[in-house]
Design a protein around this nucleic acid. Structure first.
Lengths: 103, 103
DNA sequence: TGAAAAAATGTCAATTTCGACATATATTCA
DNA sequence: TGAATATATGTCGAAATTGACATTTTTTCA
């Protein structure tokens, strides 16, 4: 990134500093993890409130009970894509999903 | 699904034709695709408004220019995970992300 | 104009995520 | 209780996604 571009970013409130880069990254990673955990927890609550077993949900999304368990456990090796597909399978509305986004 | 929306999806590489003409995409599948396209479009707008090149963003998320291009093009072979990581790298707020969710 | 920068497109080996399976542990409830 | 049901955990080859690279096409702007 050149000097001119860096100045433009900093003028609009960005921090591009050297040490800061490391901190920014970990902050993004933290936010990313928190988002996944929020989706996981909401998925579990939603499934349970619908009185569905993990096996039931697994069938609905053409997956397996073990993968649903891992989703709900917040396993790092589960994508947001699969979490979203699961929530959509449970007819989660746009408004509900919006409410799941962490601060 | 109306014709216009279908043409948008097909233009981005999503397979809506032939087989799905009678094996219609399920509502969930359609919603999933539309979500990804919405995130793609918003990412591109956000990057451009920040006057960043695709190469700039690629560096910020430790990826490559070509992958950023594919993200913004709504390529089906790009995960929501990567789109979200990119949006987080651009400091997209919870409120802004919520606004990206399709109806 | 046209050269430089930016973006788009295609490919590929490496990595990640996948469904499936086996099995252990936990919960339910007659 | 204890058997049936539900959930958690670990593993594996297959499939999907990745960053990187090469190249082409488009856009920018002097």
């Amino acid at each position: 990134m050149n000097k001119e571009k860096q100045m433009k970013l900093e003028a609009s409130g960005w921090k591009i500093g050297s040490v800061n880069e490391f901190l920014e990254l970990s902050q993004e990673e933290t936010e990313f993890i928190e988002l996944k955990l929020s989706l996981s927890q909401n998925l579990k609550e939603r499934r349970q409130s619908l009185r569905l077993t993990q096996k039931d949900l697994a069938r609905m999304i053409h997956s397996s009970q073990s993968r649903v368990a891992k989703m709900e456990a917040g396993d790092p090796a589960v994508s947001i894509d699969l979490l979203v597909k699961s929530l959509l399978a449970l007819k989660t509305s746009k408004k509900e999903v919006a409410g799941m986004l962490p601060h």
